[in-house]
């Protein structure tokens, strides 16, 4: 059952005008916007991954027309009436204005290569992707949706940590999201996290590292304490590769590094394998499904999907 898979970057379609160019911060090559977007905002010369926003991420991962946002009307309140140089509500308003998002996370159900999934995506552009009450609650609702539908949960992380402007309440979101992960675990629903540049602090020290499988994007900064904090503590300059995904892989902190153009395929592969385990575990059903070619298990379907993905036009960039 070969499936035709259309690559989905909705923004790219119907857009033919001149869109300018950008130079890669890593290799200084000049890249046209079209070239960059066609390659998922990854430099085709050096594999540098540009940071992307939550909406763009959803467009890259979700099959076109399948995104169904949940908890979209949640907004931050200001429990501490926090002000530093500016009041907290002002900062939120500005972040909304800049990103076009209501918060640092959007969550929804969608299909990824036809596989039903609950997807939550963080946006570093929204107050540094910081986790406050709304991020915590959205995560909880995404977990609730995953338990109810038994769709796997995928969370794409990008965060500087807890949101200081919500004080202790933001710290407690680490506890809250952890409790949600525990419930997801009880229900044996697969949970995959994708760590992108940067994922640090309270998000890294809660749900991001509690997933069943932890995937990272190349070159992303993944740590608990940021490099500046550590430099101040030990009074030494840190090497440029400190806390990068590749270091984390060496030190056993993540399962794999996946380039953005391969992410969608790899996610389906991993989720299919995890769900395939469930199909095997319930033995008789698996046998039954194997014998009836029309209704096969999730694993078999996933393998089919992976096979169907062989698309010669999508080269992986040189490493």
């Amino acid at each position: 059952m070969a499936q035709k898979v259309s690559v989905d970057i909705s923004r790219r379609n119907g857009d033919t005008g001149f869109r300018g160019a950008e130079s890669c911060p890593a290799c200084k090559q000049l890249l046209s916007t079209e070239e960059l977007e066609a390659n998922y905002k990854v430099c085709p010369h050096c594999n540098y991954h540009f940071r992307i926003g939550a909406a763009e991420r959803v467009a890259q991962l979700a099959d076109r027309g399948t995104w169904n946002e949940i908890a979209a009307s949640l907004r931050s309140a200001d429990p501490l009436r926090f002000f530093d140089l500016r009041p907290y509500p002002d900062r939120i308003e500005e972040a909304e204005y800049d990103t076009g998002l209501p918060e640092a996370m959007i969550a929804g159900t969608c299909r990824i290569h036809k596989m039903d999934t609950v997807l939550a995506v963080m946006d570093f552009g929204f107050m540094g992707g910081s986790m406050g009450s709304v991020v915590g609650e959205k995560f909880w609702r995404a977990v609730d949706a995953a338990i109810e539908t038994r769709y796997p949960l995928v969370v794409v992380c990008a965060s500087g940590g807890a949101r200081m402007q919500e004080g202790i309440i933001s710290l407690l979101q680490m506890a809250k999201t952890t409790c949600a992960v525990e419930m997801l675990g009880e229900a044996a629903v697969p949970f995959v996290s994708v760590l992108t540049d940067p994922t640090t602090g309270g998000v890294m020290a809660s749900f991001a590292t509690l997933a069943d499988v932890v995937i990272a994007e190349p070159g992303s900064l993944l740590c608990f304490s940021g490099p500046r904090v550590i430099e101040q503590t030990i009074k030494e300059k840190l090497p440029a590769d400190f806390g990068r995904a590749e270091k984390n892989l060496d030190h056993g902190q993540i399962d794999m590094i996946v380039s953005r153009p391969e992410l969608k395929d790899r996610l389906v592969q991993v989720l299919g394998m995890l769900e395939g385990g469930v199909a095997c575990a319930i033995g008789p059903l698996w046998e039954e499904e194997k014998s009836s070619p029309g209704r096969r298990g999730a694993l078999a379907e996933a393998i089919d999907r992976i096979k169907a993905l062989a698309n010669p036009s999508r080269r992986s960039p040189k490493k």
Binding site: S206, T209, S225, H251, G252, Q253
Partner: peptide
């Protein structure tokens, strides 16, 4: 960090 400070904390929470 190399020995997984973030994961040590998250696992302690869990």
């Amino acid at each position: 960090e190399e020995r997984g400070q973030a994961a040590a904390i998250s696992q302690s929470l869990l």
